[in-house]
Structure formats: structure tokens, C-alpha cells
């Protein structure tokens, strides 16, 4: 296990946002936290990143308990739900920020920024400011910025939420490829089943602060273990998705579920 949550509890002002959360993600895997709004997905992600502290339980990264290690020392890249790009810095400066903090040399920073701009196909947009970018471009910058310091673990909070449905589909294929190419262990949050099924190796289903089920997309869709999962996961839609996946047909026109997506 690369990341492990052991018996994590977290309460905000008397509201329990995480209840006995247990799960693990293997190295190099892409895991999805899937659940309805308010089910505690962001809370889990923030605790792994060290932005919130659990009330009890252990967080392990690479076998080490990191509860008392500040987030910046956990080797994590974080993509925020609204990207949280530094709005007074150019795209290039955004990406360079983490490297500057690490006091890398000018040349090193410049090379790395160029490399990342290329990775996310934004070579020509380095001088732009975040408000001069489209939603999809912002997301790619956020992704590049998170990857710049070479994290061992990438956390993404609803990376596609702010992007319109058409582009979303493209972007998630892109993201999956990118993550595969970089080979970084990743956990992303979503409340969209289709997204989770299409992108993730493992799906972790959350509900009211609890983990309901963990498994491959196939497992959670075909063999739901709780009533909640059974209701939440749309098995028919899953089969349709699998069919599309198998046929390598990403264009969606042939699927009866095109209209119902999102």
C-alpha cells in the first residue's frame, strides 16, 4: 500500500465528516473517491494532504505515519476543486512556484517549467494569467503546477467539476494518460459515476462520512455490497460504459446514455 487511512475520524463543530475511514491505495494506482455531495470526499483528501488533521486514526504514506508531518513534506501534489491558481502570477510562474520554494536553480526551474508546459501542451501560453485561460486550460495548468515538484502522490479534488460536459470527456482521457505517463499514484474525487468508472483503477465509495465499498469499477458496479452502493451505482449505465470502452468507441453517439450523462 502506498497510501493508507486507518480508522480515521474527523469532526467539524460537532458534525462528523469522517467515520472510521479505512482504505488503501497501491503504488502507481489511480483511485477514485466516489460519493454524493457532502459525503466527506474532500475531507478525506484534505486529511491526506495535511490541510486538515484527523481527530483520531493514522494516515500512512509509503509505510510512514504522516499525521504529524506537515503537508508540504509529504511529497504531495494537490489539484484544488477550483484549481486555486495564483491569479497574480503567469502560468509559467504558477508552475515555477513550488520549485522556487525549493530553491532550485534558475536554469533548473526554467527547464522544468518548459517540460511541464509541453507535457500539458501549453507551450505558448506560459505568459498568460489564469483569468485569460479557458476552464480546461486552467485545469491543465493546475495539473502541471501540482506535478512540478515531482510529487509521489497526486490528489485531485473534482478535477472536472468546473468544465463543461463535452470537454470533460476528452480531459479525463487525457488526465488518465498523463497520470499513466508520469506514473504517479493518484487519488481523485468525483461524484460522477461515469467518470470514476472510466478513469479509475479502484473506486472507493463514500456515504455520510463512511466508506461503503472499495473495489475495481467492475466489482462495485456488478457486486454492490451494501444497499447504498446498489442504489447509488447505476449498473445499467455501467454495462453501457463497459461496452463503449471495449469497442474503443469514445464518441458516445451510439450509446443510449449519451443524453443522461451528468
Amino acid at each position: 500500500m502506498y497510501v493508507e487511512m486507518r480508522r480515521i475520524n474527523k469532526t467539524f463543530d460537532g458534525f462528523q465528516a469522517s467515520k472510521d475511514v479505512n482504505f488503501g491505495v497501491y503504488k502507481g494506482q489511480l483511485a477514485a473517491l466516489l460519493g454524493p455531495s457532502g459525503s466527506g470526499k474532500t475531507t478525506i483528501l484534505r486529511m491526506i494532504a495535511g490541510l486538515d488533521r484527523p481527530d483520531s486514526g493514522d494516515i500512512l504514506i509509503n509505510g510512514n505515519r504522516v499525521n504529524d508531518i506537515p503537508g508540504s513534506k509529504r511529497g504531495i501534489g494537490f489539484v484544488f476543486q477550483n484549481y486555486a491558481l495564483f491569479r497574480y502570477m503567469t502560468v509559467a510562474d504558477n508552475i515555477a512556484f513550488g520549485l522556487e520554494v525549493q530553491k532550485k536553480s534558475k536554469k533548473e526551474i526554467k527547464d522544468r517549467v518548459e517540460e511541464l508546459l509541453e507535457l500539458v501542451s501549453m507551450q505558448d501560453l506560459g505568459k498568460r494569467y489564469p483569468n485569460q485561460l479557458s476552464g480546461g486550460q486552467r485545469q491543465r495548468v493546475a495539473f502541471a503546477r501540482a506535478l512540478a515538484p515531482d510529487p509521489q502522490l497526486l490528489l485531485l479534488d473534482e478535477p472536472f467539476a468546473a468544465i463543461d460536459a463535452k470537454v470533460r470527456r476528452e480531459l479525463r482521457t487525457w488526465l488518465k494518460q498523463m497520470i499513466g505517463r508520469v506514473g504517479v499514484t493518484s487519488i481523485f474525487v468525483t461524484h460522477d459515476q461515469e467518470e470514476a468508472v472510466e478513469v479509475a483503477d479502484t473506486i472507493i465509495i463514500t456515504n455520510q462520512g463512511r466508506i461503503e465499498q472499495i473495489g475495481t469499477p467492475e466489482e462495485v458496479c456488478r457486486y454492490p455490497q451494501t444497499e447504498f452502493v446498489k442504489d447509488f451505482v447505476d449498473a445499467e449505465r455501467f454495462e453501457a460504459l463497459m461496452a463503449i470502452k471495449k469497442n474503443g468507441n469514445n464518441r458516445c453517439q451510439n450509446s443510449p446514455f449519451c443524453g443522461t450523462i451528468n
Binding site: 494532504a49 495535511g50 490541510l51 503537508g71 508540504s72 513534506k73 504531495i76 494537490f78 484544488f80 477550483n82 486555486a84 491558481l85 495564483f86 491569479r87 512556484f97 513550488g98 520554494v101 525549493q102 503546477r145 515538484p149
Partner: peptide, 12 residues
């Protein structure tokens, strides 16, 4: 505080 948190996570 997202931007601040993002920066803090990078070690600033």
C-alpha cells in the same frame, strides 16, 4: 484560502 493552501502545500 485555496491559493494560500496551495502555496503552503508546496512548502512556502
Amino acid at each position: 484560502k485555496d491559493e494560500e493552501e496551495a502555496a503552503a502545500l508546496m512548502g512556502a
